[in-house]
Design a protein around this nucleic acid. Sequence first.
DNA 1: GCCAACGTTGGC
DNA 2: GCCAACGTTGGC
Length: 146
Amino acid sequence: MKSEPSEVSIDDLAARPGQTVPWDGVRNYQARNFMRNQMQLGDLAFFYHSSCAEPGIAGIVEISRLAYPDETQFNPQSKYFDPGATRENPRWFNVEVRFIRKTRLFSIKELRSYPELAGMRILQKGNRLSITPIDPSEWKFIEVQL
DNA sequence: GCCAACGTTGGC
DNA sequence: GCCAACGTTGGC
């Protein structure tokens, strides 16, 4: 799960009350569907810092609340406001994640260096999804090196 | 700041 | 339903 550290970094998450954050503001249908249809309570995810000086995996989080309607879509003040969404018929959903631990920075450069990880969605050319599923074998390969 | 790649929008 | 134009993403 990608987050810009200037918005929410792994340290920001660790400092929050309850060490949780709603993963709101996602406005891509595929990413929404991963959250709404696939994610289960207790599922683990890598917390990835994107659009920054050192992009890469920076920590591990768990899903602490199942997907529910993203509050920001209803707020005209929010940059994520969606005039096409109603409370009766919400368009966007988000899970909540909880801090598990910080890791060393496992950079995108290093991720790219391992043939074992070449199939990772996040490494594919042109990938723009902020949320992508990860193969269990890829998870293990990375986790033991963190 | 650049720019390739992609998703969305909207006129037709 | 097509597709050009536009906006966004995100590594570099």
